[in-house]
Simulated assay, not measured.
Amino acid sequence: MNRLSVLVHTWVPDELRARLDDRFDADYHDVFADGLLEPEPLKERFRDKAGVLLLGPYVGAEIFDACAGTLRVVANIAVGVDNIDVDAATQNGVLVTNTPGVLDAPVADMSMAMVLAVGRRLAEGDRYVRAGRFRTYPFQLLWSADIGGETLGIIGLGRIGKRVAARAQSFGMKVCYHNRNRLPDDEAAALDVEWRSLPDLLAEARYVVLLCPLTPETRHLIGAPELSRMRDDGFLINMARGPVVHEQALVEGLQKGEIAGAALDVYEFEPKVDSALWEMENVVLTPHIASATRTTRLAMIDLAARNLEAALTGGDIPTPVNPEVLKRSF
């Protein structure tokens, strides 16, 4: 019996590779060793594949149209699916899956770490010591912002945002949030959070943490007008997706002193980063590692693989994004 072919566009641990090899005719591309495939090579590697285990590149309508009738599932190794044209997938009967839940706690931890890092100037202090400049008692050195007693504003109070709120409150912070849809009053009261309009949140919060998904509505949600509304002693922390922030507007706002600093784990054109950000002492930069604990990354890959396996060999799909496709027979 002919085995189904799959593309594995990611690194996978040896035990998972053996599992996939046992079930499928697998074509591997290690993005960490060889980089992301460009659009045309990616399209060619998708050809004749029943499923794809995917990390990274954009998969648009052209690929789904070209693979119609053969491709059954794209198992994304992320919560967000902004790298996939889900509408085109659905139109072509392709199931899309993601990896929610398993990364909530580490992303919340990292969000709070970035608040602390930019507010308390931790990266600056590290660079200061490494440069050999720590030679005397520095009473007036690197005075920083308070954490406790300040207001944290969360844009996107979902599963991760709620965990960030709890962590911030343990530091004595007040938490307000902005969602398109407000939480029920009893839930907001239980979480001890208060809703604000976006302009009001930006004006009030010392720390603004972005945790919203990337959608057409949230692309460039934070641009020049929004940065001008923030406090001049405020900090922007982007843990969502890079294009939620207009990166050039952020650079210009920082240069003008419209805000006090920023902490970024994601970038508008990643892996490219505006070189002006490299030179700014009041900016903390990390390479999209919010979920990068060993346990979490292995759990993400495993969940994506289980989605792939269930879609191709039968069984319940753990985390479908477009479950309406499941009503159709492959």
Rank of each mutant, 00 (worst) to 15 (best):
V6N: 07
E15M: 05
R17C: 12
A18V: 15
F24C: 02
V31Q: 02
A33I: 09
R47E: 14
L54Q: 05
G60T: 06
E62F: 03
C67I: 02
T70G: 11
L71G: 06
A75M: 08
V79N: 01
V81D: 01
V94C: 02
N98S: 13
A108T: 08
M110Y: 14
S111A: 15
G119A: 09
E124K: 05
Y128E: 10
F134S: 01
Q140G: 15
L141S: 06
W143E: 05
G148F: 13
E150T: 15
I155D: 04
A166P: 00
Q169H: 03
F171D: 04
L183Q: 02
D185N: 09
D186V: 06
Y207Q: 00
V208R: 00
L214V: 11
L221D: 07
D232R: 14
R241H: 13
H246F: 05
Q248V: 15
V251F: 07
K256A: 15
L264V: 13
L264T: 12
E268K: 00
D274S: 11
S275Q: 15
E279S: 12
V284H: 02
H288L: 14
I289F: 10
L303N: 04
A305E: 08
N307E: 10
A311H: 07
A311R: 03
L312T: 10
G315Y: 12
G315S: 11
G315A: 10
D316T: 15
V321I: 08
E324K: 01
R328P: 04
